[in-house]
């Protein structure tokens, strides 16, 4: 495949970008926080894909994880609680040339922003959504979140959480038009990178739930899963994630899962005895909202003005001559 001559001109004064070019400031997250692993994986992805910094934007809501845009030397929007997704959709509509990443926490996405989450999946606009799920509200110092397991003691539930937790993967896979759903854990960085990379390349709304540690408020919460690699179930497939021999030596529990099989994906998502890691569902045929919308032409200022005038003219009462 040859390269377009105009593109050569574009590249002619471009310098290769290194990982540090995407680093803006030292993260303020606690030492040992799983957000750091996600940040490292995303910065590595940007470097490997040589993404132009002015062509990507990170959008977040409120929470520990939502500080993410501050640490990326790109465009960023640290928005309102639960409203990361609608902001991201707005950006996607107006700036289709930008790649949009969304960083949202289990409270931001699954609680206050749940309605937006459902419809963002349904609208399937081309963006990468990373759900940083530590199963606790960390920023406000340990309150129960929708994904906290039943019985988890917190400042708001000292006698343990009363309800069964919400499973974000089951929810996502139950929404119409879902096109990409994957799950990762922050303590398997190779897999995390691979999954985020595949999510980035997916044309549509790619939803990745990353289970992450909160060393401050739930320091031993994931130890049971972390200490025993057999607690992870790797989902492999020739069209999905493939594991290296080194990883296969560590994570022996594997299942060949076709990412197009939605029913099996739902079964896997509901597993309780193991954490499934990999791409549960991917369907590139699901249309993106921005493509379905497919306006006949561009909404230039002239077009918008003409349309508004035409609408207003319908209601104009002309004075009798």
């Amino acid at each position: 495949m040859s390269v377009s001559a105009p593109r050569c001109l574009l590249w002619s004064n471009d310098e290769p970008v290194v990982l540090d070019d995407y680093v803006s400031e030292e993260p303020r997250w606690c030492t040992g926080c799983g957000d750091l692993a996600i940040l490292a994986a995303v910065q590595r992805l940007c470097r490997d894909e040589q993404l132009a910094r002015e062509k990507i934007v990170f959008v977040s809501g409120i929470g520990c994880s939502s500080r993410f845009p501050h640490y990326m030397n790109t465009y960023g929007f640290h928005g309102l609680h639960g409203r990361a997704l609608p902001v991201a959709e707005g950006i996607r509509i107006k700036r289709p040339d930008l790649h949009v990443f969304v960083n949202t926490g289990d409270g931001d996405c699954c609680s206050i922003g749940a309605a937006h989450w459902i419809h963002a999946i349904r609208y399937n606009m081309n963006m990468t959504v990373l759900l940083h799920d530590n199963e606790i509200y960390g920023l406000t110092k340990k309150q129960v979140s929708p994904t906290s397991p039943k019985g988890l003691a917190s400042n708001t539930t000292p006698r343990g959480a009363y309800l069964d937790s919400l499973n974000p993967m089951e929810t996502t896979l139950g929404v119409a038009n879902v096109s990409f759903a994957a799950q990762a854990v922050d303590w398997a960085p190779g897999l995390l990178y691979d999954i985020i990379s595949k999510a980035y390349k997916h044309p549509g709304c790619s939803f990745v739930r990353v289970l992450q540690r909160c060393p401050e408020y739930l320091p031993e919460h994931f130890d049971h899963w972390m200490d025993d690699p057999d607690q992870l179930l790797l989902l492999t497939h020739e069209d999905g994630m493939q594991v290296t021999p080194d990883l296969a030596r560590i994570y022996k529990q594997q299942e060949i899962h076709d990412p197009m099989d939605l029913n099996r994906a739902r079964e896997i998502a509901s597993m309780k005895d193991r954490i499934p890691v990999g791409i549960l569902y991917r369907n590139e045929q699901v249309p993106c909202y921005e493509d379905v919308l497919n306006p006949a032409g561009l909404f230039t200022p002239e077009v918008v003005r003409t349309n508004i005038e035409a609408e207003l003219d319908k209601f104009t009462v002309w004075p009798a001559s």
């Binding site: 290194v18 990982l19 030492t31 799983g34 590595r44 303590w187 960085p189």
Partner: peptide, 25 residues
């Protein structure tokens, strides 16, 4: 190194003994 989660624990302890590579691990 490929399993490092970039949690800063070791680099906070001694930033000369431990360092991050080009993948931040």
């Amino acid at each position: 190194t490929p399993r490092c989660t970039t949690c800063d624990e070791c680099t906070d302890l001694n930033g000369k003994l431990f360092a991050y590579d080009e993948n931040k691990q």
